[in-house]
Design a protein around this nucleic acid. Sequence first.
DNA 1: TCTTGACCTCAAGTTGACTTGAATTCGTAG
DNA 2: CTACGAATTCAAGTCAACTTGAGGTCAAGA
Lengths: 135, 135
Amino acid sequence: MNLLDIGEVVERTGNSPSTLRYYEDIALISSAGRKGLRRQYEPDVLLQLALIALSKSAGFTLDEIAGMFGGKARPELPRAQLRHQAAKIDVQIRRLGELRDTLQHVADCPAPTHLDCKSFRRLLTASLKPGSKSA
Amino acid sequence: MNLLDIGEVVERTGNSPSTLRYYEDIALISSAGRKGLRRQYEPDVLLQLALIALSKSAGFTLDEIAGMFGGKARPELPRAQLRHQAAKIDVQIRRLGELRDTLQHVADCPAPTHLDCKSFRRLLTASLKPGSKSA
DNA sequence: TCTTGACCTCAAGTTGACTTGAATTCGTAG
DNA sequence: CTACGAATTCAAGTCAACTTGAGGTCAAGA
């Protein structure tokens, strides 16, 4: 059999054993069996964990991730929902672009306080609801 | 004076009063005074909060945000550090692009389980340390 | 004047994502 | 065969980022 010992999974993914157990508790991954007490995993778990890591770094909660990819035996993928998530990520990407530009700008701007800088203010003012009173 | 009542800040930023108080507790923002008991803020707080929201959505902790922008009176911005952060965000953007593509792909892919799909696997395998044993 | 609604303080509770600790059990190297 | 290292369970702890609750205070309108 070509199962992976938990130790190998730990080493290759960088997750700690307790994290793997935790993920199993919440049914994000599953182990294929035991050798003695030690969990053994199917090699695919490596990909699953990579996907989980990627999604986490994208700001998704484990619940959301489970919703996107959870349940190995999921018969019919919620394709529409996946596309929706992809679109949300696109929004996120644009937001990050904004933030990156903002940071770049703050780093380059000669204004003493960033709040004094015009284009910095412009970058941020978008997200605000207009006040009823004058600005 | 043109100070903003906390109620207005709440309405215009979407933060709850308790959040504003919390941010003040941890010195992320400051209030300019009180009217009766009610906190009053300088209008700039709106920009600060927009920046905080943006940064949070980018995955930064409040601590990190405080590190980047905290302390109104910060005399010398850590420009190098800001550029570094900007670069990190760029990495994050690329990662998100990957995830978006992955999701798109999974949504479009005819393979019954996403783990069965070749290009899906290829997208993920990058992040894994090579195993000493055969794959 | 009196009521009401939105704020106040302070402590404690919540959620997500794990980690830590104590007591235990394997499988392998010696 | 025995000791060791690494994994096991289960409960409890931790950290960030807030929210909630109890009890209190104000300022504006009927």
